[in-house]
């Protein structure tokens, strides 16, 4: 036994170092490491798009979850330190851009070449028992009661929190921000009446709105939204055009490959991505789940993430919750 295995091991080390890239990419299965937990939005989007891309690339794509650290820094760090051969992707969302300023890692986001699948617009809602029926009501009601609204949203510094800050800035409404571990618990808190208003994405909220548990006030998005069975939800941009200064930030969800990956690998991934985005399955899925598809990759996607990085990090700097100044990483001001 020993006689066979030991020489085999030694041979193995020789072969393993010599043999790579004999056939064109992808020879092996691709691993996509999602940095957010299983069952969440980023995870669902990645599993869906990967399954479609696997058909085009004619290989298997394994989706694994590696959560933790600051804004997904552990998963991103581990993928970044692997070979940039295109066999390791990372599933990300716009919330990952604050990892550096919070001390998660020492990289700017341009180490990735992102592929943006899409996003879901944010909506601000109240419990259906609330007397408030519109954004105007919200403002008027506070003028009477003089009390701050308790506003629920997932994690400090997340995209929904930033939307809340923007809305507070332009409308002058006083919100007391109550952080929750994620969008789902914050919505539950709005249903139980623990908080007065909640901001999450349409994808997360649509079922509760349609089920009559939450009442939408306005979209935090330039266009109104047509929700089946509910009607048209107006855009807050109509009332407050100043919102357009920074918004709409899209809650960009997608995946990325190491920026140093070979060009032919990136091209091949890009082609597969485009094909997958065109497939009826993805389109149907986006319709069912209230996602707006983007399909950006390459230069366009890098620019979008650079803009997000700049806005997120500098806004948090203004709140004083950063560990390091964005200057340290050379992130320009928005």
């Amino acid at each position: 036994m020993k006689k066979i295995i030991l020489p085999a091991l030694i041979m193995a080390s020789v072969i393993a170092t010599l043999a790579h890239a004999a056939r064109p990419y992808p020879v092996r299965p691709i691993t996509n490491t999602v940095v957010w937990s299983a069952g969440g939005g980023t995870d669902a989007v990645n599993r869906m798009i990967m399954a479609e891309m696997a058909k085009v690339l004619d290989t298997r794509i394994n989706v694994v979850n590696k959560t933790g650290g600051i804004a997904g820094s552990i998963g991103m760090n581990s993928v970044l330190s692997k070979r940039p051969d295109g066999y390791n992707l990372v599933g990300i969302s716009s919330s990952n851009v604050v990892a550096a300023v919070n001390g998660g890692w020492n990289e700017r986001f341009d180490v990735w070449s992102p592929f943006i699948v899409g996003s879901s617009p944010d909506v601000i809602s109240v419990n259906t028992d609330s007397p408030i029926t519109s954004l105007q009501d919200l403002v008027a009601h506070q003028a009477q009661s003089q009390q701050a609204y308790k506003a629920g949203a997932g994690g400090t510094g997340g995209i929904h929190h930033l939307y809340l800050l923007e809305l507070a800035r332009v409308s002058g409404v006083d919100f007391q921000f109550v952080p929750y571990p994620g969008s789902a618990p914050s919505q539950t808190a709005a249903i139980t009446g623990e908080v007065d208003v909640v901001i999450t994405s349409m994808a997360e909220q649509a079922q509760l709105i349609r089920g009559g548990k939450l009442r939408p006030l306005a979209m935090l998005h330039p266009e109104p939204f047509e929700l089946e069975g509910v009607g048209t939800i107006p855009s807050a941009f109509g009332l407050y055009p100043e919102l357009a200064e920074h918004l709409p930030l899209s809650q960009a969800i997608g995946f990325a490959v190491h920026q140093n990956a070979p060009d032919d690998v990136k091209t091949k991934l890009g082609k597969a991505f485009e094909a997958a985005m065109q497939s009826p399955v993805v389109k149907q899925w986006a319709r069912d789940n209230y996602y707006q598809l983007s399909g950006k990759h390459g230069e366009a996607a890098r620019d979008e993430f650079a803009a997000l990085e700049s806005y997120f990090t500098w806004t948090l700097q203004g709140l004083g919750s950063n560990k390091f100044s964005p200057d340290k990483f050379g992130i320009p001001k928005p």
Binding site: G39, Q207, R210, N289
Partner: peptide, 15 residues
Amino acid sequence: LLGALLLHGITPGPS
């Protein structure tokens, strides 16, 4: 399981 259901186009919820 919720993630899996969403993937199959089934959105659990009040409706």
